[in-house]
Each structure stands twice: as structure tokens, then as C-alpha cells.
Simulated scan of single mutants.
Amino acid sequence: MNSTPSFALSSLLVASGGAAGAWLRYLTGRAWLLAGPAASTAFPWATLTANVLGSLAMGLLVGLLARHGQGGEGWRLLLGVGVLGGYTTFSSFALEFALFVERGALGLAALYVGLSLVAGFAALFAGLWLTRWLATGTLA
């Protein structure tokens, strides 16, 4: 994969990588079930594991692609966008935060983290509220 792939090939790389990443995420959750139901439900260990392992893998991937220079777009699409995107989007979030920090844009880094957390949580609660409202017709 030494040149920029076509849109069709890019789409195939992202989709196939995404399927593999989603399956790996499922396996991570299943692995935590082996520790017993109490361990897997008392704390979101599987999500934490996916976020940490995905972030480590993203760092390794970006480091390798940067070290080897040009020609890594297909690998970035397959592994970074596809596999790691299907496994956890937290790895992309961590990379984008790190890029702000490395550029010395600490204010933007903090803004990005803050907005991501506040807006993400607010959107989740809005979705829950909207679903309940549509189901019951009340604002409870």
C-alpha cells in the first residue's frame, strides 16, 4: 500500500478494518466476562481496556507511519481509521489531543477535551430524554 488508494479501495479498507475492530472490541468484552459477572459489571473494565489498548496501538501506528514516511495512507485507513475506529474511537480522541499538545496548543487541547466530554455527555442525556419523551409523551 504505497500510494493513495482510490475512494473504492479506501472505503473497502476502512469497512473491513472497522469490522475487524468491532469484533476485537466484542472479544475484549467477552474476555472480561471470564473474570466473572461481578468483575465485568461492577466497573466498565472492557471499555477501559479497549480505550487504553486502542490508544497504545494508535501511538504505535502513528509512530511507525511517521518513521517510514510516505506511502502509509492505505495502512492508516485500514488500521487507524478502520480497525482502531471499530475497536475504540477514544484512540483517535487521544491522538488528536496529543497533536494539539505537541504543537503547543494547550488551550485548544483543553478546549477539545472539555467540549468533547461536556457535549458528549449532554448529547447522550438528550438522546435518553428524547427517547423517553417519545415513548411516554411526558418530560419525566
Results as ranks from 00 to 15, higher is better:
119 A>Y: 03
51 N>M: 15
123 A>K: 00
28 T>K: 06
102 E>L: 13
103 R>K: 15
135 A>N: 12
84 L>S: 05
119 A>H: 00
118 V>D: 08
84 L>G: 07
48 L>W: 14
76 R>L: 13
127 G>A: 07
30 R>V: 13
86 G>Y: 04
109 A>L: 10
58 M>C: 08
130 L>Q: 12
43 F>Q: 02
129 W>S: 12
114 G>H: 09
6 S>C: 03
74 G>M: 05
57 A>F: 11
59 G>V: 10
93 F>R: 02
14 V>P: 09
61 L>G: 02
16 S>E: 03
58 M>P: 10
63 G>T: 04
100 F>S: 02
109 A>C: 10
105 A>E: 15
115 L>Q: 03
88 T>H: 07
32 W>D: 01
87 Y>I: 03
73 E>G: 00
28 T>R: 03
98 A>W: 14
55 S>K: 01
137 G>R: 09
107 G>M: 09
77 L>V: 06
15 A>F: 10
27 L>D: 11
29 G>F: 04
45 W>N: 06
70 Q>Y: 06
136 T>E: 05
78 L>K: 04
25 R>D: 02
109 A>M: 08
16 S>Q: 05
108 L>H: 12
21 G>Y: 07
47 T>R: 07
7 F>E: 01
43 F>W: 14
50 A>T: 11
127 G>H: 07
21 G>T: 07
65 L>F: 03
40 S>M: 04
134 L>Y: 04
10 S>I: 07
48 L>A: 13
61 L>I: 06
99 L>K: 12
105 A>F: 12
95 L>V: 05
50 A>P: 05
65 L>S: 03
129 W>M: 04
20 A>Q: 00
117 L>K: 01
137 G>H: 09
5 P>T: 02
140 A>L: 13
71 G>S: 08
33 L>V: 00
23 W>H: 10
129 W>L: 08
124 L>Y: 15
115 L>I: 14
51 N>D: 14
47 T>C: 01
76 R>W: 14
53 L>H: 01
4 T>N: 13
104 G>A: 02
113 V>Y: 06
140 A>I: 05
37 P>G: 12
102 E>Q: 15
91 S>Q: 04
93 F>N: 03
38 A>T: 12
68 H>P: 00
7 F>N: 05
79 L>V: 15
122 A>C: 12
42 A>W: 05
47 T>N: 11
77 L>H: 05
63 G>Q: 06
114 G>N: 07
20 A>D: 01
69 G>S: 08
52 V>Y: 04
84 L>D: 02
128 L>C: 08
17 G>F: 06
78 L>Y: 14
125 F>I: 10
128 L>H: 09
20 A>I: 15
92 S>R: 02
80 G>S: 06
127 G>V: 03
101 V>C: 11
59 G>N: 07
120 G>T: 09
13 L>F: 11
89 T>M: 12
61 L>Q: 01
63 G>R: 09
134 L>D: 00
23 W>D: 00
28 T>C: 15
44 P>K: 03
105 A>I: 00
40 S>W: 08
28 T>S: 14
17 G>P: 11
83 V>T: 08
95 L>W: 13
